[in-house]
């Protein structure tokens, strides 16, 4: 749908660290990870919305992502106020 624009995200995954607990594929709302033969596979990286759920729930830190809000209003307000991180204060 709209995902093609957001091809490059801050998501990275080190498959060698994976213990196959299955958390990342359970928590991802966009099916970015898939459990295959006891390890997680990064099958749909372009669908990542950088919510950070997978990285936060990975017990071995195999996943890193810079989480934050995909909201233009929040980002423009943050830029105007000189804040580094956009926050959802307006809704």
């Amino acid at each position: 749908m709209l995902k093609s624009k957001y091809l490059k995200t801050s998501l990275s995954y080190d498959a060698e660290l994976c213990t196959g607990c299955g958390m990342c594929s359970a928590v991802c709302p966009h099916g970015v990870f898939f459990q295959n033969n006891g390890t997680a596979q990064l099958i749909h990286p372009s669908a990542c919305m950088e919510c950070g759920a997978c990285a936060l729930n990975c017990p071995v830190n195999a996943i890193t992502v810079d989480p934050g809000t995909g909201c233009a209003t929040a980002q423009m307000i943050a830029a105007l106020k000189g804040k580094k991180e956009p926050t959802c204060d307006c809704c």
Binding site: M1, L2, K3, K5, Y6, K8, T9, S10, P29, H30, A47, C48, M49, E50, D66, P67, G68, T69, G70, C71, A72, T73, A74, Q75, P86, C88, C91
Partner: peptide
């Protein structure tokens, strides 16, 4: 973008 459930921080930036 902020109302949708699929936009990312880096994509919106």
């Amino acid at each position: 973008t902020g109302a949708t459930p699929f936009t990312s921080k880096s994509g919106v930036a």
